[in-house]
């Protein structure tokens, strides 16, 4: 059962991240997702500190809030202070992440939060906190949260598909037709904040970034339709979770680290395979 809980949980994170990451990859904004996943840390801590619990709702709100604040700060640096956007991202998220680390190391000794958990997560111990669902079966607490967010995100992407698609593909054209490009930007960023916040407690910040960028990038190499890319990215994320988990079990290493590595290896494999096929096809057609 423990195997199932871990793979299921990692798969939920994979789906959440693939849905958001596909849009981020096509917007060339994956690093913004990276930034948000780190910048939420002070928000999480402050919410924890004020509410005095690791109960999820205040933490979710605090984190989502600091994710949005991070995007606003980055936008301010780029638009008002005319800083390069990558520099703006680098400056703001390291600052916010560092503040979070300081807060945790100073006040977090007797809390659930520690630096280790922030970076690597604790998916190995996920089944220590089982909760009944509708009295029917038991799921780890984290998994229930991830599952609810997964449902929210699928609904959001289905509802907002056209808006997200057109503002990702051609924001200038979208603006010219009167579409509120800014709304869709923050709509997506709220989703990214939510995803990273609920994911990082179980899988850690590093795996969140690997899930945000890897599976969508792999899917991008393989398909020519954005809807297919979304679905394939989810499937690839699930596959990598299972492969990574068994590899970790076999080698007795960190699950999050192992899954991240598998994602990277799959990317390299697909990249090489696609290019070999392409050059073969070119030779035949020539």
């Amino acid at each position: 059962m423990n195997d199932f809980y871990i793979i299921f949980t990692a798969s939920l994170v994979a789906i959440n991240c693939a849905l958001m990451g596909s849009f981020l990859v096509m917007r060339k904004m994956v690093m913004l997702g990276d930034a948000i996943s780190h910048a939420v840390l002070p928000g999480i801590f402050i919410a924890y500190f004020l509410s005095g619990s690791t109960g999820s709702l205040p933490i979710l709100i605090g984190a989502a809030f600091s994710g949005i604040i991070a995007t606003l700060i980055i936008e301010w640096f780029t638009k008002r202070a005319r800083l390069q956007s990558d520099a703006a991202i680098g400056v703001s998220y390291t600052l916010l992440f560092a503040i979070g680390i300081i807060l945790i190391s100073k006040f977090g000794q007797n809390a659930d939060l520690d630096q280790q958990c922030v970076l690597y997560g604790e998916i190995e111990y996920i089944s220590l906190w089982l909760k009944p669902v509708f009295g029917l079966f038991e799921l780890p607490k984290q998994t229930i949260i991830l599952l609810s967010v997964c449902i929210i995100l699928i609904a959001a992407v289905v509802w907002g598909y056209k808006g997200l698609f057109i503002t990702t593909f051609d924001p200038n054209f979208a603006l010219s037709t009167g579409i509120a490009v800014g709304f869709w930007h923050y709509f997506l960023m709220s989703g990214v904040s939510l995803t990273t916040v609920v994911s990082f407690e179980s899988v850690g910040a590093i795996l969140v970034i690997a899930f945000l960028s890897g599976p969508p990038a792999i899917a991008y190499l393989l398909v020519e339709d954005f809807k297919k890319m979304l679905i394939l990215a989810c499937a690839i994320g699930i596959l990598c979770s299972a492969l990574g988990y068994y590899a970790a079990k076999w080698l007795d290493v960190s699950v999050a680290g192992s899954i991240s590595t598998v994602i990277g290896l799959v990317f390299v494999f697909v990249f090489v395979a696609v290019n070999l096929l392409k050059s073969k096809r070119d030779v035949i057609s020539a």
Binding site: F169, E224, F226, K228
Partner: peptide, 10 residues
């Protein structure tokens, strides 16, 4: 040139 023509779209 404003857009990315490698976008997965038909």
């Amino acid at each position: 040139q404003d857009i990315d023509w490698d976008f997965p779209a038909s």
